[in-house]
Write a protein that binds this DNA or RNA. Structure first.
Lengths: 393, 393
DNA sequence: AACCATGATGGAATCGTTTCCATGGAATCG
DNA sequence: CGATTCCATGGAAACGATTCCATCATGGTT
């Protein structure tokens, strides 16, 4: 009863053929119909399942893919993960999961673990930058980023003031054709203002970069990505708020929202009121603190756009705590459409991005890699107007 | 630059020792301090990382653990997964993830995948019953159930009426001592009323069970589990609602809520109004339909307890759609404390269960297995009173 | 009729690790 | 001082698959 699983050798003996033949039959090689049939029958009868262990060792790679997300408690990443799993399941591939907590160090550790497991395909919502992902790339991993691109380390020149006007990413048609990644990630995240700390290693490591450093900075990683069209989403939201009469619109961002804040800056136009652009770390506490601080320091703001659903949650909570009515006192647009957005009262107006699709497409890309050089994908966002925005009074 | 990873053989040669010695040094065997030091130095210098592939093949088992949950879009399972990942990370073990969609067939498929990968430790929120998990057990897997126990197939006798009175699970002290599992899962899920279908294989397979079938039915699986104290949680909620004057209290359940509905029946007492006990499948649509149907068919009910947060969400939505005010027209208690429970207005009164802890403990159990026969764990629940319950008018 | 091409087949090497076993030297004990 | 023990050590055999390569049979061509 407790017999161990049948091996290919067992099948070969039982079928009276060599192991090579069995292997060929099972993996679609050439074999005479007679033998094929017999082998198949014996294999079925013995309930033989090829061990992934032997195969993986021989081909020096584990099948399947790794999936690295910041936090599964965030509904959006849950959706994304479901998408990845759906694709992986239909391909019959296993998925190794890791949660980084938006911490580059944990992320690096998880990458190390995947390397050890010889998992050479990874889908990641990256937290670290080139420091973290360079080694993975060099180790030959096939990587697809989802939902974000790695934050680029801030240039060493005056990180406090990144004048968005000097970024010529106007309508970026040709740059997109040449280098889709860089065009999409036009403006680096203004590290100076964020509290997203913990990237202690970056300063020290880059010292060894040498002459190529400038170029590496400009285009650190050449990795395909599946992203939502943040720029259009944010722009649509800002225009919508503008149309309602709002002029002092704040942005509440978190780690990984670099492209969104850039889009926000672009959408609101030249003189950006920097006090209205606030960042939190990944935690719910930090999000709440940031939201609360924002409302208190700038009671004159009339609308807020949040870069993710955890921030949106925090904004609702903070507003309630400070007796700000939504949308009467403050209008709110949240990034991410999550089921509970409709439960709030008023229901939250959101910028919906297709989390599940993002995951699915990313998984497709990472599986197809090798067949065809995967190119980045940008999926549309949609402004879903519910009840959390009103005219400015 | 593109050199492949160093193997143990490379280290052995570079250090001038045999591979066996390297292996011993690296896995804590005996070695002279001199050699140990040298090997360690060489290994570090070569950036050697033992390949899990070779090790796994040799020991005929993959490290790490599988994790099977119904749906990562459900915040509670997100919390649970985070707990598992936290424990796995601290043990340096990989986690292979699968999402079952509450479908026994998909679950069985995923188990097959894990078997193929030689992942012999699994944490699961089970959807299928003994049909699904028996094979896994027989294959020698170490299994720990989390959050639920497998549904037992309904006895072949009149599945429509399961008189709860004939279940003697009164206060179950001694039964718990003998068989914690069965005591906890006193009353089978009333399959007749649910729409959780899809267990097509069960009828066919069990035909081969033979004489032992009756016994197998009574105690199908001997697997440790980490559960929340559903019984106390539900009882507390029902008593709380009773104290507010509610008499017609409904229960809205989903797949896997067998123990909760049993506790509900027990808590409301002998003549259970069966129309007030309604089940949905796992999907949000089905949950909404069930909630809406319940409110419409029984407008006289004054309170609802939902067996999970997706059902709670559905109840809020359905109530709003039908112009039922919470808590004025209907009081609501939701199982699961999720961040957005506080966002609703009024904020939802919930039965909190420690999702993260459940996952963490389950992972601990599954890792410790072999050392010590793991026993089941029951974690406390807590009624968190917010604003969704009011006195009956 | 001899020869060559083709296709099916099995033996054996290989992947990177752990672990069994034999060997040799040093140390301890009688 | 001899014998016994003990420990460090390296060679080699697994683990279960894939895949290269040689072999053999067959059928068609010259």
């Amino acid at each position: 009863m407790e017999s161990r699983r049948a091996t290919i050798k067992d099948v070969a003996e039982a079928a009276g053929v060599g192991v090579a033949t069995v292997s060929r039959v099972l993996s679609g090689g050439s074999a005479s119909p007679r033998t094929r049939e017999r082998v198949l029958a014996v294999a079925a009868q013995l309930d033989y399942r090829p061990s992934a262990l032997g195969r993986n060792l021989r081909q020096r790679r584990t099948g399947g893919m790794g999936l690295l997300v910041p936090d599964l408690t965030d509904t959006f990443y849950g959706q994304l993960a479901e998408g990845v799993l759906a694709c992986a399941r239909s391909a019959g591939e296993p998925v190794v999961l890791g949660s980084t907590g938006d911490d580059p160090e944990q992320e690096a550790e998880l990458i190390g673990m995947l390397l050890e497991q010889s998992v050479d395909r990874v889908i990641a919502v990256p937290s670290g930058g080139a420091d973290t992902w360079g080694p993975a790339l060099k180790a030959g991993m096939t990587i697809v980023f989802a939902d974000r691109l790695p934050a680029e380390p801030a240039p060493d020149t005056s990180p406090a003031r990144n004048d968005p006007a000097d970024d010529p990413t106007g309508d970026m048609p040709e740059r997109a054709a040449v280098a889709d990644l860089m065009a999409l990630d036009g403006v680096p995240l203004p590290e100076g203002r964020t509290g997203s700390g913990g990237r202690t290693a970056s300063g020290g490591r880059t010292a060894s970069g040498g002459a190529r450093e400038g170029a590496a900075r400009t285009r650190p990683l050449d990795v395909p990505a599946v992203l939502a069209d943040d720029r259009t989403g944010i722009r649509t939201a800002v225009r919508y708020l503008r149309g309602l009469g709002h002029r002092r619109i704040a942005f509440l961002g978190g780690p990984g929202h670099g492209r969104r804040v850039a889009a926000f800056r672009e959408a609101v136009g030249a003189p950006v009121d920097e006090e209205l652009v606030v960042f939190a770390t990944g935690s719910r506490d930090s999000a709440y603190a940031a939201a609360s601080g924002l409302f208190q320091s700038r009671p004159d703001l009339t609308a807020v756009v949040t870069g993710g659903n955890v921030l949106g949650e925090a904004a609702v909570l903070a507003a309630r705590e400070l007796d700000l009515r939504v949308p009467r006192d403050v209008s709110l647009v949240m990034y991410d459409d999550v089921p509970w957005a409709e439960l709030c009262s008023p229901p939250l107006t959101v910028i919906a991005q297709p989390g599940r699709d993002i995951g699915y497409r990313a998984a497709e890309l990472v599986l197809r890699a090798g067949t065809r050089r995967p190119r980045s994908v940008v999926l549309p966002t949609e402004l879903i107007v519910r009840g959390s925005c009103g005219p400015r009074y």
